[in-house]
Amino acid sequence: MQSVYRKFVCVVCNHIYDEALGDPETGISPGTKWEDVPETWTCPDCGASKADFEEMK
């Protein structure tokens, strides 16, 4: 079965944002959909913008 959660990868450092896990350290709760992550959120590893993430397929 395919997971309903998607993953996004930072093109600058390969950090993965997994919707299932969110990013609690930066205040994003587990289960937060990518579209609900604020546009001002930045990569916790390298500081790249949300726009610098690509969906992993």
């Binding site: 093109v11 600058v12 930045t42 990569c43 390298c46 500081g47 790249a48 913008s49 726009a51 610098d52």
Partner: peptide
């Protein structure tokens, strides 16, 4: 010289 503006410049 920071990631965010450099990526922005490149795009």
């Amino acid at each position: 010289a920071f990631v965010l503006p450099v990526r922005n410049q490149a795009v």
